[in-house]
């Protein structure tokens, strides 16, 4: 009898995790992998969020292409690339009322980008700037007010370039007076010389971690393509790390969250998006251990501390948003030409 009792208990205990095991599979960027950010949602819905990190829309879309319908429930994607994903049938329409758009910063609703033929497929969740990050203890802040300083020769060998072609080509375009919206295969040729010049002046072209390390250790003093997403997490360690939107402008990045087509848990996926867009979720995402960024929902300001808002430069957003341009949105041909130019620059 005792043995039977033990066996039943063991069976029940053993099965418990399986019974509780509703899971949500999320294709995300590293800021969503912070357990402290996911925990409130997991506890509230008694669910486990499985995350897989990816970088770059092409990699994300390739992952979806190789997956079966139902493998993924939600996905983080560059807001400007939502149309690309919809075109390939990867995203499901977003249920109405999921995003508290009335509380959003006006400039980051990005309706034109997250809506295709009148249907909304994603909601912007976080934004920031790709611009110039620098160490103000080693670099004149005044110099950084213009992109021209990068090509002046004064900072040769002290510059790192963020290894992502879209924002950096956008910045090179701004330096040449080309708006990001006007970047196409034709205008790209005019960026070749400035891009190669920038590479010649730089010490390295690096990913997020290597860029952070280089800036934090003083290997370089300037990061082209950097911004609050890179310096904010290092602020306590080194308050001299700063960023600026120069007079020529900067680039606005905006990440969005969408339900993946074929998800077998669309309601749970919608609940997850609601959580991320709630003031608490937004505050957690904005100050995630991987990188910080501005929450799309202004109501997060009630949850964030004054110190956190100061690091995020909450009060300057109106000015920044007015001066920043969206990422270039290249068609396939322009995208290939941009990547060819980028590869050439890396090999140069």
């Amino acid at each position: 009898m005792l043995k039977q009792g033990c066996a039943i208990t063991a069976l029940v205990v053993g099965c418990a995790p399986a019974l509780q095991a509703e899971e949500l599979n999320a294709l995300i960027w590293c800021d969503h992998a912070d357990p402290a950010f996911l925990a409130p949602f997991e506890e509230a819905h008694d669910v486990r969020v499985n995350v897989k990190e990816y970088e770059g829309t092409a990699a994300g879309l390739t992952l979806l292409e190789q997956s079966r319908p139902g493998d993924w429930d939600v996905m983080v994607i560059d807001a400007v690339d939502v149309g690309r994903a919809v075109e390939r049938g990867f995203l499901a329409p977003l249920p109405e009322g999921v995003a508290p758009l009335d509380d959003y910063f006006d400039e980051v609703r990005l309706t034109d980008h997250v809506t295709v033929e009148g249907t909304t497929y994603a909601a912007v969740e976080k934004f920031g700037y790709n611009t110039i990050a620098f160490n103000k203890a080693a670099v004149s802040a005044e110099d950084m007010t213009s992109l021209k300083a990068l090509w002046s020769g004064k900072y040769d060998g002290r510059i790192a370039i963020y290894d992502y072609y879209l924002p950096v080509l956008g910045i090179a375009g701004l330096a040449e007076g080309v708006a990001t919206a006007d970047l196409d295969a034709g205008s790209l040729e005019s960026l070749r010389a400035p891009l190669m010049g920038l590479k010649a002046a730089s010490k390295q072209v690096s990913d997020v971690v290597a860029s952070q390390t280089a800036l934090a250790t003083g290997e370089v003093d300037i990061l082209v393509g950097g911004g609050e997403w890179l310096t904010a997490v290092l602020h306590e360690e080194n308050p001299d790390l700063d960023w600026i939107i120069p007079e020529e402008g900067g680039l606005l990045w905006a990440q969005s969250l969408a339900i993946v087509e074929g998800s077998e848990k669309p309601e749970l996926a919608a609940e997850f998006i609601k959580y991320v867009l709630s003031p608490e979720g937004q505050a957690g995402l904005a100050t995630s251990s991987c990188y910080w960024g501005m929450p799309a929902n202004k109501a997060a300001g009630d949850v964030l501390s004054d110190a956190q808002k100061a690091v995020l430069r909450w009060d300057d957003q109106a000015d920044y948003l007015a001066r920043a341009q969206l990422y270039p949105v290249p068609d396939a041909e322009t995208d290939a030409a941009m990547q060819d130019l980028w590869t050439e620059m890396l090999q140069n």
């Binding site: 970088e55 770059g56 092409a58 990699a59 879309l61 390739t62 990547q339 590869t343 890396l346």
Partner: peptide
């Protein structure tokens, strides 16, 4: 860029 880096570039960036 070495060959493996070029391969990763094709996979991660260009699909």
């Amino acid at each position: 860029l070495s060959l493996p880096q070029l391969i990763m570039l094709q996979l991660g960036r260009r699909g």
